[in-house]
């Protein structure tokens, strides 16, 4: 089961990257970027999955303490993904702010129109 998710994760990442590089429209580029980050997040969580593991929350009603330790999923990648999702939000928000200002400046969403800085 985690193979399938890992494949989707990688596929999404590559596809997001493709979108980022091929699309002319600025918004589409940012969309590509957010898909790229989502794909990577999926891969990160998939790495931490232990077959047959349950969520790493040890509320002691059902499963006994010791038994639980055998079957929980690795919490570390989840902690990392938590941070990277928020980072993804921060970067996307900043990019969108840039796009708004750029649009105000040149009234175009095509990235080829923003070429003042060259050579």
């Amino acid at each position: 089961m985690e193979y399938v998710i890992m494949t989707t994760g990688f596929a999404l990442a590559i596809f997001g990257l493709y979108g980022l590089l091929s699309q002319k429209n600025l918004i589409k580029i940012i969309i590509g970027f957010s898909i790229f980050t989502t794909g990577i997040n999926i891969v990160m969580v998939a790495i931490g999955y232990v077959r047959g593991g349950i969520a790493p929350i040890l509320d002691n009603e059902g499963i006994s303490q010791i038994a639980a330790q055998k079957s929980i999923v690795d919490p570390v990648p989840q902690a990392l993904v938590l941070t990277s999702i928020v980072i993804g939000l921060g970067v996307t928000a900043l990019m969108l702010a840039y796009v708004m200002k750029l649009y105000q400046d040149k009234k175009s969403l095509n990235i080829n129109d923003y070429k003042n800085l060259k050579w």
Binding site: I47, Y49, P75
Partner: peptide, 21 residues
């Protein structure tokens, strides 16, 4: 991608957190 076989049990770090987290 190809090296990922899915782990049977926790990594050493994960195990430590599980035991005395």
């Amino acid at each position: 991608y190809e090296s990922y076989q899915g782990s049977e049990q926790l990594t050493e770090l994960g195990q430590y957190y599980a035991d005395n987290g």
